[in-house]
Structure formats: structure tokens, C-alpha cells
Nucleic acid binder design. Structure first.
Lengths: 260, 260
DNA sequence: CTGAACATATTGGTTAGACCATTTCCGCTA
DNA sequence: TAGCGGAAATGGTCTAACCAATATGTTCAG
């Protein structure tokens, strides 16, 4: 029965008034919200498979198109992943920090926000967490950091040092706070940084021998639980990175992205 | 002609082979990507109106369903806003920090992350930006903050102080850095905080007279460009908030969200 | 001439039914 | 036993139509 839906299904007789106030906007949006709640409440956990589109149609009493639109939104939000074929369907996924990072990246490339702004925020955050890192870093953390530093040094010699390696180091430092919120934030910041820099084609000269050596020194300071020294090193390190950004008109002055 | 699409439009005769290698995943995804690029490159700026669904069908050579799925994704990504009715359609919007904040909020309520984690991250960040605030706050910033403080005080007397008011204050402090990246981050953090606290029904006792007075003192310190004092006040303030969170088993120990 | 009621065109929202492409699985054949 | 081939399940897409909301033009009463 096409068309009986959004008007509130006035039925035939007396019930007309009872339903009048509702008439909520989009049906697919209602479905999305319902799913979101189920996921948030743990009724649906990552890995679970939602019923097939055709089943959902029946359960919700809507057409397949509407169900599909809801699934598209959920997919775009990173809440489900969709696989085709038999035994396919919509599977609940945990939205990773990557997902959020993507959103942040998009915002950064589109919003009126300069690379300097981002760098400044980074400095505040990455300097701020250093005391926590110095206090909490485990032997394993430090070992990992050493490995990353060494990889960086050899890559530097080979001329193959990438921005991604620097990002990995800084993220690993952040994760040494053993605070997932902090780790996620640093990760989110490095993603867009990476993207915009690669777009601007300035990835190559971003890290010199000095930078690599500072990474090394930083790890030492952390190992020795020397918060002050760590702070000084990181500060110098980030400041120089910021300087390189500022030098480059493509990424320093204008928006991070290509921009309007 | 139903079904001529995803196979690569084999036409009738000889061209079949030429198109074989493509067959990219989802058509709507291609459209989304194309739109995204147009927006990123500035070919489409906020406020622009996309052609109507029916026009897009013709231009892309696909059905309306497909176009609509693409629009749903773009909408969920916060890139367009859709209005119905004549002169309606899809309008390009700048993804606001709210948009990203929502994503962050979702992540926070879903990820294995405690309220304490979030609070700690908040402390790092909000304490870290204070020097910037003290250095850069304009008269207007300070006037705004005063207003917020007064509103808070009267609300407190009336017993109607909400978490939202506290959030507004902290966000306004952050925006006094005149760095959009920082403002966005603080905003993103307060959203989920708000949500989880309201869920846990502990909104009421979260702010006492002491807290309100600390807001007042903080504004004074900022006005006097007294970074040290501002730091001390904010530190105490956040610490007590953290304490209140920890007291409450509902929101302090378990995940921020209701959780599995 | 002015203003309000009505008609119309534009546009998104939804439905039904169909067909195709991909993937899994089960049974059949060599 | 090993491999192959055909259901069956499932997402992806298409068509044609109608409904609901909105803006604009048009007409008629005052």
C-alpha cells in the first residue's frame, strides 16, 4: 500500500486524532536512531550481524529502499560494515579512532583552520602529556620507542624517512600515558597532518637529522624520568616542525586543504 | 533499462571487453567521492545548492535511488544539508566542529574509555591552553566570560544550574585562545561529557557554589594576565570535578556509556 | 489597488516489484 | 576423494508511480 506511511496512516475511522502529533521527519532516520541505541546499550555488540535487508523491511514495516538508506547512514557513521553475498549483510563494528580521525581530517581540510592552529594545539597537548608519560611509561613502552627511533634513523640515512614514521613515534609516545582518550586524540591529529602535508608535497624535507636525534634524546629523558628535560626537548622539536610549516606558504598560511 | 548498470553497460555488441576491468564497488560511493572532491577543491562552496535529485540522475546516468544513497552519505558526513519542498534540495554546508564532536562523542561512549580517562585528557588540554588564553583574551572575551559566570551564579541560586552551562563556560574560555582547532577540541570533549553525565543522572550535584566561585576567580585571573593563578584555580576546579566523577560508580568506573 | 485564498509546479520521501552480481554451501559427478 | 556446478541467500540497482512539503503565481473579493 504505497503512501500510507508518513502522513500518519489516518486509517479509516476513529483513530485519526490519536496519531496526529507524530509525523516524525524521515523514517530512515528513526531506524538509524533505533539501531544506534541498540548499539549504545550493548544489545548489539561488534561482530553481530544485523538481519538481512529484506528481514528488516518486514520488521520495521517499511520498504527496502528505506532500510537501505538507514544502513548507508550507519555505515557512513562507522557503526556497521556491509558485506555482500550469501552470509553477507550488515555487521556491527566498533568505530575506531581512525574513523573519528577521518572526520577530524575532513574538518581540518575544510574548516577555516590553518596548519599553524593545528600545530599549536598539538604543542599544547603533546607537551601537556609528557609528565604523564614520564611517570607511567613501562619498559615495554620505552623499548617500542627505541625501535621506532632506530627505524627512523636508518630511514633517514636511506633518504626514505616519511611523515608517517614521525606520526607513529608521536602516537606511541602518547599511548605511553596508558590513557586511550589521549592516544586517540594524538592519533586524530596526526592523520590530518599527514594528509595535508602529503597533499602539499612537502613531506620530504620535514625531518632532518636534528629531528631524528631529538626523538632519540626524548626517549632517553623518558627513561630517566626526567620530565623537565623531556619537556625541553619536545618543545624544541615541535617548535622546529612548526617553523618548517610556517616557511611553506602552501600549508602554513592558507587553509590546510586546498581551500575554496 | 534495468540491470544495464553495474556490469559496465555492455551495450549491444563489440564494446563489451573494453569496459571489463572496471566494475568498481558501489556506484553511490563513486558519486560521493566526486562530490567530496568538488567540495574540497572549492568548486562547491558552502551555501551552494546541488542540482535536484532528478537532475543528478540524468547527469550521472543512474537511478534516483542511487543518487539518494549518495546524498544520504554526504548528509551523514555533514557535507550537505537537505531541505524538502520547492527550491529545496541538497545544500553544501561546512562541517562544523559540532559534527566532529558528535563523532567523537559516539566514539567515547562506545570505546573502552572511562570518564576518568576523558577527564584526565581534559585537564591536560584545558590547563595547557591557559597561558594562551591569558596572553590573548580580548576585552570582549572577558566580558562574555563575566556574563556566563553571572548566569551561572543566578542559576545556582535558583537551583537550575546545568552541566550545559559549565560546558559553555569552558568552551568560551577555550575560544579565547582565538585558535579554532583548540576551540573545537574542547567543544568535542564537553559534548560526550555532557551526554554521559546526563545519562547517569548525576547532573544535578556536579557544580556547587565553590565551583561557580572558581569560575569567577578564573575570569579575574585571566583579566589580570596572571597565568600562574589561573593555572592554580583551573587545576583545583578540574580536580574537584574529577573527584565528583570518581565518587560516582555509574560514570566513574565503568565505560562512559551504558556499556554492554 | 490590496490582500488573502486557491491552484500549480518543484522537489524530497516512500513504496512495490523486478532483475543482476557476488558469495556461500551443498550435492553430484568423475 | 576431489573438484565442479548449480541452488540459495544477500546486497546493488533500476523503473514507475504516488505522497508530502514548500514556494510561487493567479485569481477573486473587498
Amino acid at each position: 500500500m504505497p503512501g500510507s506511511a508518513s502522513g500518519g496512516a489516518p486509517g479509516d475511522r476513529s483513530t485519526a486524532d490519536l496519531f496526529s502529533p507524530v509525523s516524525v521527519g524521515r523514517i530512515s532516520e528513526v531506524i538509524v536512531e533505533q539501531m544506534r541505541i541498540l548499539i549504545r546499550e550493548g544489545k548489539l555488540v561488534p561482530g553481530d550481524r544485523l538481519p538481512s535487508e529484506r528481514s528488516l523491511c518486514e520488521r520495521f514495516g517499511v520498504s527496502r529502499v528505506t532500510v537501505r538508506e538507514a544502513l548507508r547512514v550507519l555505515e557512513a557513521s562507522g557503526l556497521v560494515e556491509i558485506r555482500v553475498g550469501a552470509r553477507g549483510g550488515a555487521f556491527v563494528t566498533l568505530p575506531s579512532s581512525e574513523r573519528v580521525g577521518e572526520g577530524l581530517a575532513e574538518l581540518l581540510t575544510l574548516a577555516p583552520m590553518t596548519a599553524s592552529d593545528v600545530t599549536e594545539a598539538r604543542m599544547v597537548f603533546e607537551l601537556g602529556i609528557l609528565p604523564l608519560v614520564v611517570e607511567r611509561a613501562t619498559d615495554e613502552d620505552i623499548a617500542d620507542l627505541r625501535v621506532l627511533v632506530e627505524q627512523g634513523l636508518s630511514a633517514l640515512e636511506a633518504g626514505s624517512y616519511t611523515m608517517a614514521m614521525s606520526a607513529a613515534f608521536h602516537v606511541r609516545v602518547a599511548s605511553s600515558t596508558h590513557n586511550p582518550a589521549i592516544e586517540m586524540l594524538v592519533q586524530s591529529f596526526h592523520g590530518p597532518m599527514l594528509m595535508s602535508l602529503q597533499q602539499a608535497q612537502v613531506a620530504a624535507p620535514l625531518m632532518g637529522p636534528r629531528g631524528a636525534h631529538e626523538h632519540f634524546e626524548l626517549v632517553e629523558a623518558i627513561e630517566q624520568r626526567d620530565a623537565e628535560r623531556a619537556h625541553a626537548i619536545m618543545s624544541r622539536h615541535l617548535q622546529r616542525t612548526a617553523g618548517r610549516l610556517a616557511e611553506n606558504p602552501e600549508s602554513g598560511q592558507a587553509n590546510v586543504g586546498g581551500g575554496q
